[in-house]
Amino acid sequence: MIRLARALVATLLLGIGIVQAGQNCEEKPITLDAASKAFSLASKLRDRLEASNDEVVILGRIGRDMSRYGLRYSHAGYAWRDHPKGRWLVRHALNRCGTAESDIYDEGLANFFMDDPLYYEVLVLRLKPELQSRLALALKQPLRLHEPRYNLVAYPFSSQYQNSNQWLLETLASAEMPGDPGSPLGREQAQRWLRQNGYLPSTLYIPTLTRLGGRITRANIAFDDHPFGRRMAGQIDVATVESIAAYIDKQGELIKQEVLTLP
């Protein structure tokens, strides 16, 4: 309950503090143009969601340029209907700037696009109804699989750290596993399920000097959770939006994949 209260307080402080998900990590007011674009894309997304019978979908956004790694989307979150009011909220993990910690946040759809995205575009992953229902139950306990020690390049099969996409992926695994989605579950169990069911992370090539520079200058970057041999070869495996989408499709749980952009 203490951690949940901390996460809710963090949500209220979004207008004061800064969280890491967009291009920049600096305190500056949002421009009128950026706010207008965020609300326009959110409105388009809401119309699409309201036209469906979906209860939970996965959203991907382009917070930063990942093209050097052959990736487009940098961050994922769950959008779900806030029953009984029926509002759409985004629940996701975010790193507070300048720190090595994260919290779970509930935000409106427009807020999801307000922290300086590279492009105003959203990927929508629509899931099979049974998985949606199980995710809705799992999302009622968002801190169950949350690890506040944040690492931007966390290794997906280690519980030492966690990044935003890894929290979403492990929550997805908890909904896929047999039994009650709300029952006690450890991160190691979720990771074991993912490995056994063929989840494949994305591999980023990050050379030694780049790794050393990132580790020294950034509080939220560490490589010591990665297997030694692959780390020395510059092969850094991470949970990405694309790898999550590929896994869901491989499991036969993906109904449709859509991309919404501003005109």
Rank of each mutant, 00 (worst) to 15 (best):
A35F: 09
E130N: 12
T240E: 04
L123A: 01
R215G: 06
S159D: 14
E176R: 13
R215F: 07
R91N: 07
A35Q: 13
L32Q: 14
Q196W: 06
A246C: 11
F112S: 00
G77Y: 00
H92T: 06
L131M: 09
Q160S: 10
W167A: 01
D225Y: 07
A38T: 00
F157L: 11
A138D: 02
E170Q: 14
K37C: 05
P184M: 07
E258M: 04
A245R: 13
Q23S: 12
W80M: 14
A173P: 02
L172C: 11
K85T: 14
T203E: 12
Q20N: 13
A7D: 15
H226A: 05
V124W: 02
R96N: 09
P178G: 06
Q189S: 14
L145G: 01
F157Y: 15
L89G: 00
S183G: 14
K128R: 15
M1D: 11
K140T: 13
G186F: 09
R61F: 02
L123W: 01
D115R: 05
L71G: 09
S43A: 11
L94A: 09
Q132H: 09
P117E: 03
R215S: 15
R187Y: 02
R81S: 08
D237E: 15
L59R: 00
S133Q: 12
I206V: 15
G108K: 06
V90D: 00
I221Y: 06
G70P: 02
I255H: 08
S52C: 08
T11K: 08
Q257I: 10
G108C: 09
R64G: 06
R3Q: 15
Y73M: 03
L118A: 10
Q23W: 05
M1T: 11
Y247E: 03
D249F: 08
L71T: 07
A5W: 14
R230E: 15
C97T: 10
I104P: 00
A34I: 02
L135D: 00
G229C: 08
G98S: 10
S133G: 13
L49D: 02
D47I: 04
K37E: 07
E130Q: 14
R126G: 00
L185M: 15
F113K: 00
H146M: 14
S74M: 05
M114W: 02
V19E: 04
V259T: 14
Q20R: 13
R61V: 04
A10D: 10
L172V: 10
S202H: 05
E101P: 01
L172R: 06
L89R: 11
W167G: 01
Q191S: 09
D33L: 14
L137P: 04
D115C: 04
D82I: 09
S36K: 02
I206A: 07
G17A: 13
Q162T: 05
A38C: 06
G214C: 08
T203Q: 10
A42T: 04
G182E: 12
R218W: 07
R211Y: 06
V241G: 01
I16P: 03
Y105W: 11
V57E: 00
I30L: 11
P84F: 07
K37Y: 05
A100S: 15
Y120N: 01
A239Q: 01
P181C: 10
H92I: 03
E188R: 13
N24V: 12
R91W: 02
N24G: 10
I18M: 08
L169R: 02
T240P: 03
L12E: 11
D115W: 02
A38S: 10
R231W: 14
